[in-house]
Measured scan of single mutants.
Amino acid sequence: NNDALSPAIRRLLAEHNLDASAIKGTGVGGRLTREDVEKHLAKA
């Protein structure tokens, strides 16, 4: 659900052409954090 993404996370996802649903969020309520996105990028 993109409504739960902060603007910074949306921008980071867009810059790397990532789909938020492909990344498991570890923030409050399962929200994506910058660390989640960076860890996903490091794996790729």
Rank of each mutant, 00 (worst) to 15 (best):
N1G: 13
N1H: 14
N1Y: 07
N1V: 12
N1W: 12
N1C: 05
N2H: 13
N2L: 14
N2K: 12
N2R: 09
N2Q: 13
N2A: 14
N2C: 07
D3E: 12
D3R: 08
D3K: 09
D3Y: 03
D3A: 10
D3S: 10
A4E: 15
A4V: 12
A4G: 13
A4C: 07
A4I: 13
A4T: 12
A4N: 13
A4W: 15
A4P: 11
A4K: 12
L5S: 04
L5Q: 07
L5T: 06
L5D: 06
L5A: 06
L5P: 06
L5E: 06
L5W: 05
S6I: 05
P7F: 05
P7M: 10
A8E: 15
A8R: 08
A8D: 15
A8I: 09
A8N: 07
A8Y: 11
A8M: 07
I9V: 11
I9L: 13
I9R: 01
I9D: 05
I9T: 04
I9G: 01
I9M: 06
I9P: 00
R10M: 12
R10E: 15
R10F: 07
R10V: 14
R10I: 15
R11N: 15
R11F: 14
R11V: 14
R11W: 15
R11M: 11
L12V: 06
L12Y: 05
L12W: 07
L12H: 05
L12I: 06
L12A: 06
L13P: 00
L13M: 05
L13E: 00
L13R: 00
L13K: 00
L13D: 00
A14Y: 09
A14F: 10
A14Q: 12
E15N: 08
E15I: 14
E15L: 15
E15D: 09
E15M: 15
E15H: 12
E15Y: 14
H16L: 09
H16S: 04
H16R: 04
H16Y: 12
H16P: 00
H16M: 06
H16Q: 03
N17V: 04
N17S: 07
N17E: 05
N17M: 08
N17F: 07
N17R: 07
N17K: 09
N17D: 09
N17L: 05
N17Q: 10
N17H: 11
L18Q: 03
L18K: 01
L18Y: 03
L18A: 04
L18M: 07
D19T: 11
D19N: 11
D19C: 12
D19G: 04
D19Q: 11
D19R: 07
D19V: 11
D19A: 09
A20F: 06
A20I: 09
A20T: 05
A20M: 06
A20G: 06
A20V: 09
S21D: 13
S21C: 05
S21P: 03
S21V: 07
S21W: 09
S21T: 12
S21M: 09
S21Q: 11
A22Y: 07
A22E: 14
A22P: 02
A22G: 06
I23G: 01
I23V: 08
I23S: 01
I23R: 00
I23M: 07
I23T: 01
K24F: 08
K24R: 13
K24M: 12
K24P: 09
K24V: 13
K24Q: 14
G25K: 05
G25I: 04
G25F: 02
G25S: 05
G25A: 10
G25H: 06
G25D: 01
T26A: 03
T26E: 02
T26I: 03
T26R: 03
T26G: 03
T26H: 05
T26N: 03
T26F: 03
G27W: 02
G27M: 02
G27L: 03
G27P: 01
V28K: 12
V28Q: 11
V28L: 13
V28H: 11
V28I: 14
G29S: 06
G29W: 04
G29I: 03
G29M: 06
G29D: 12
G30A: 04
G30I: 02
G30T: 03
G30N: 05
G30M: 03
G30H: 04
G30L: 02
R31A: 15
R31M: 13
R31D: 05
R31H: 08
R31F: 05
R31S: 13
R31T: 13
R31G: 07
R31Q: 12
R31I: 11
L32K: 02
L32I: 15
L32S: 00
L32P: 05
T33I: 04
T33N: 03
T33R: 06
T33F: 01
T33D: 02
T33A: 02
T33E: 04
T33Q: 04
R34A: 10
R34M: 15
R34T: 10
R34Q: 13
R34N: 07
E35Q: 11
E35N: 08
E35I: 08
E35H: 09
D36S: 00
D36F: 00
D36V: 00
V37E: 00
V37N: 00
V37H: 00
V37P: 00
E38H: 09
E38V: 11
E38M: 14
E38L: 15
E38C: 09
E38D: 07
E38K: 08
E38S: 06
K39Q: 12
K39L: 14
K39R: 15
K39D: 10
K39H: 10
K39A: 14
K39F: 10
K39M: 12
K39V: 08
K39W: 11
L41E: 01
L41H: 06
L41C: 04
L41K: 01
L41A: 05
L41D: 02
L41Y: 03
L41M: 06
A42N: 10
A42W: 08
A42P: 04
K43M: 14
K43H: 14
K43D: 13
K43Q: 14
K43F: 12
K43T: 13
A44V: 15
A44L: 15
A44K: 13
A44F: 15
A44W: 14
A44T: 13
A44P: 13
A44G: 12
A44M: 15
